[in-house]
Design a protein around this nucleic acid. Structure first.
Length: 476
RNA sequence: GCCCCCAUCGUCUAGCGGCCUAGGACACUGGCCUUUCAAGCCAGAGGCAGGGGUUCGAAUCCCCUUGGGGGCGCCA
């Protein structure tokens, strides 16, 4: 019988999904999809103080957005339900195995002092009923066997070796009855038939403890692979001090899921020269865990933006429209969605010329908004440097006259119109061009002027020139 | 303190004993294009942490040092 690959991503719902977590999830997902296995989502919510349902929802939503979908999980269930450790605790799953360990004398109850709750009174293999009644804290501690060498093969780090002398006895069941991480993770990974564990390198030193439990319970451990952590530019773990760290933040900043995923994969993944831009879905077959870097990596915001820009420009324009709409939806910009839906052909042309200038959806939103909103605002610099100058009114008057006469609104026709206007030498070519640019879009940085005018069309262009002329007259 | 992981341009990496005068990508600098800003194209600057070995030969293998990171929680 062939063993089916089963992996899991097991976040604790104590906050948003961190890009480091997303990368871990990505490698699990990539490996699983390539091996045609099952990817499981498990909520490690044994920290009752910090775990929240909101966080759980946030994490699942972020994973869905990234497209890293799971085959079994707390929301959809599966053959090893439930998938929340808190629920598994209620079902008595961890207690059962803790008791087995105690019966085998591989774990003991520890009774603590009533006043000094950190102070251990004694250890016992029999459940200390009377002390519990009297209100003493009781935990279950795993007894680390002496003189053992724990060996395992890490798929990335190679052969690992730890001595049991270096490991102290550790608690597996807290006084509130909840299992600790090292215990719950073993029980669940075994019960859920996990075959491969890909997780952050910060778990490497905990692995021998878990292996000890596997052995004590007579279970076969899974394969392990500890992947390097993501750092900030100062070589400390990536945190909010360095900038954004949550997947959610990158989403609201206008990054594409495909771009973020591409960058995360690039971060510590050997990639063939000239092939760094890709959709991870197209790399499933070539994905090889051997290509994952063995070194902690620094998160580079600039490269992420570059990758995202590449995606934005390489995408089919129809998809850009869909992504943009989804983005506005995410930001709850209903009015703008309505404007865009009104004339889909126009909107597509606008987004198509605008995306050439930007790297993110947020930037795309900024640069394209004046095309959709007739009551666009004027940049301060435009008003000061162009609109308030003496040449503004004569050029605008002439422009309106010429625009009305111009019948050719192709890009070439618009170019001729603007060049003819500049040829009147009311002001320099640059000043003329910039004055018109700002007049119709309010900004000094826009897509190409000719193509912008052509996309706007005659009606909008003339109306906007007139609107600007009126403003020019009122501000003097 | 003990245990563990890691070490090539600023960053991500190629390299797995001679193809290395160390290659690519982002960022940076200059140029081209140009009505703006980008994009695009071309060019440039920039690195094997240090010290010992092994070898005819070392970025590549070994040891030490240094540096960075992680773990040693009733956090996960």
């Amino acid at each position: 019988m062939i063993t089916v690959v089963r992996t899991r991503f097991a976040p604790s719902p104590t906050g948003y999904l961190h890009v480091g977590g997303a990368r871990t999830a990505l490698f699990n997902w990539l490996f699983t999809r390539k091996e045609r296995g099952k990817f499981i989502l498990r909520m490690e919510d044994t920290d009752t103080e910090r775990s929240t349902k909101e966080s759980e929802h946030l994490i699942m939503e972020a994973l869905r957005w990234l497209g890293l979908l799971w085959d079994e999980g707390p929301d959809i269930g599966g053959k090893h339900s439930p998938y929340r450790q808190s629920e598994r605790k209620e079902a008595g799953i961890y207690d059962k195995y803790a008791k087995m360990l105690i019966e085998d004398k591989k774990a003991v109850y520890v009774v603590y002092d009533k006043e000094d709750r950190k102070k251990e009174l004694f250890e016992t293999f029999d459940y200390p009923e009377e002390y519990v009644q009297k209100g003493h804290d009781v935990t279950v501690k795993f007894k680390v066997p002496a003189g053992k060498t724990i060996r395992f093969h890490d798929l990335l780090k190679g052969d690992m070796e730890f001595r049991s002398e270096d490991i102290e006895d550790f608690i597996i069941v807290k006084s509130n009855g909840f299992p600790t991480y090292n215990f719950a993770v073993v029980v669940d990974d075994h019960l859920m038939e996990i075959t491969h564990v890909f997780r952050g390198e910060d778990h490497l030193s905990n692995t021998p403890k878990q292996l000890l439990i596997y052995e004590a319970l007579g279970w076969q451990p899974p394969e392990f692979m500890h992947i390097p952590l993501i750092f900030g530019s100062d070589r400390t773990p990536l945190s909010k001090r360095h900038g954004a760290t949550s997947v959610d933040h990158f989403r609201s900043e206008g990054y594409l899921a495909s771009g973020l995923l591409n960058y995360l994969a690039l971060l510590g993944w050997k990639v063939e020269e000239g092939k760094e831009i890709f959709d991870i879905r197209d790399r499933l077959e070539s994905f090889d865990i051997k290509d994952i870097s063995n070194k902690n990596v620094v998160f580079d915001y600039e490269k992420l933006e570059w990758v995202n820009g590449k995606h934005l420009r390489a995408m089919e324009i129809e998809r850009v429209c869909v992504e943009f709409r989804n983005y506005l939806d995410y930001l709850n910009m209903i009015e703008l969605i309505e404007l865009i839906e009104k004339d889909k052909v126009y909107s597509m042309e606008v987004l198509n010329i605008c995306r050439e200038k930007v790297n993110t959806m947020k930037q795309l939103l900024d640069i394209s908004t004046p095309f959709f909103v007739d009551s666009y605002e004027y940049e301060e610099r435009y008003i000061e440097d162009y609109l308030k100058k003496n040449f503004a009114i004569p050029i605008l008057e002439e422009a309106i006259k010429m625009a009305k006469e111009n019948e050719d609104w192709t890009v070439e026709g618009c170019e001729k119109f603007v060049r003819d206007l500049a040829a009147k030498k009311i002001a320099s070519k640059k000043k003329t061009f910039q004055l018109i640019r700002g007049a119709v879009l309010g900004k000094l940085v826009t897509p190409g002027l000719f193509i912008s005018l052509s996309v706007l069309g005659k009606g909008k262009t003339v109306a906007r020139l007139q609107r600007t002329l009126e403003l020019a007259r009122t501000i003097r």
